[in-house]
């Protein structure tokens, strides 16, 4: 969505422009303070990744590094299974996110466009799934994957990630489905498209912002998950990036420099993806819900 039109010179009775200007300064200050507060831990991550290891937890903390080194990054990249971890994370996250978006979209279409018996029950199921504390579910989930044969398989992890993001995704996309004018769909139908055909050709593209918004949630959820992936995946070359990260902690302490460098690298794809869809997402997040 376009950035709010900057001060419209139009007919608006210029009411106290001075005050407005002054208040803008105040808000800029607020913005900068908030920027520092939000960015400081991220800054610290990057700074720690660039510092020699013994300076990271130095007793004489400085807000900027005295010496900069890329050693930590080299160690992080050279650690065993980095490549396979990237591959695993990509396979798992891309599939889980795409699958969740697909299922959520068609489910959202159902609850957004139809009245049918069981609709409320379905919505309740969506809700209950979100209420459970994830750590308590670990063992029952593991046993279930054992039954299904999903242990040590990518799909075992994928399915769990997919399902845990379904409720939010369905919810969000539903908001877009109901906002799409019916006429559009109907005219397409009359043109000879089937209902599903109409959906795919006409409506799907209009859901893009909602999909973008939901997918970023799904991605952050899947990309940053650790415990389930660690417990379910057994072969070391199937470990995801977040599991691989923990290899920097041994019984002899943690290689914090490498850990921070690796974390910096791991965060990059998420930030890039986020930047790509961020604008659409800000639009997406609300037009769904505001409608209510």
């Amino acid at each position: 969505m376009s950035v709010t039109a900057p001060t419209r010179p139009g007919p608006t009775p210029a009411y106290r422009p001075d005050r407005k200007k002054k208040s803008r300064h105040v808000y800029n200050v607020v913005g900068l303070v908030a920027f520092v507060a939000m960015a400081f831990p991220v800054y610290w991550l990057v700074v720690s990744a660039l510092r020699p290891n013994q300076e990271i937890r130095s007793y004489d903390q400085k807000l900027w590094p005295d010496s900069v080194t890329l050693d930590n990054f080299q160690r992080a990249i050279a650690a065993p299974n980095f490549g396979t971890a990237i591959q695993s994370s990509l396979i798992i996250c891309v599939t889980a996110v795409a699958g969740a978006m697909l299922m959520a979209t068609i489910a959202a279409f159902a609850i957004g466009r139809f009245q049918f018996a069981g609709r409320k029950a379905f919505m309740i199921v969506l809700l209950v799934v979100q209420l459970l504390p994830p750590t308590a579910l670990l063992i029952p989930l593991y046993l279930q994957l054992n039954e299904l044969g999903g242990l040590n398989e990518y799909w075992g992890v994928i399915v769990v990630y997919l399902v845990s993001t379904l409720p939010f995704a369905t919810w969000m996309i539903r908001g877009f489905v109901v906002n799409i004018p019916k006429e559009l769909e109907e005219s397409a139908m009359v043109d000879g498209c089937s209902r599903m055909g109409a959906f795919w050709r006409v409506i799907f593209p209009l859901l893009a912002p909602g999909l973008a918004a939901a997918s970023i949630f799904a991605l952050i959820n899947a990309w940053n998950e650790y415990l389930l992936a660690y417990v379910v995946l057994q072969d070391n070359d199937k470990y995801t990036l977040n599991v691989w990260l923990m290899n920097f902690s041994t019984s002899r302490g943690t290689d914090y420099g490498a850990l921070m460098a690796a974390s910096t690298l791991i965060a990059i794809p998420v930030v890039v993806f986020f930047m790509l869809v961020q604008k659409k997402m800000a639009a997406g997040l609300t037009s769904g819900a505001v409608k209510g």
Binding site: I139, L227, S251
Partner: peptide, 20 residues
């Protein structure tokens, strides 16, 4: 398969309950 100190026993507890 190399294990991590943080959550190894959790993993073993789960694994012993399953087939793998």
């Amino acid at each position: 398969q190399y294990q991590q100190w943080a959550d190894k026993t959790k993993k073993l507890d789960a694994a012993l309950a399953g087939d793998k």
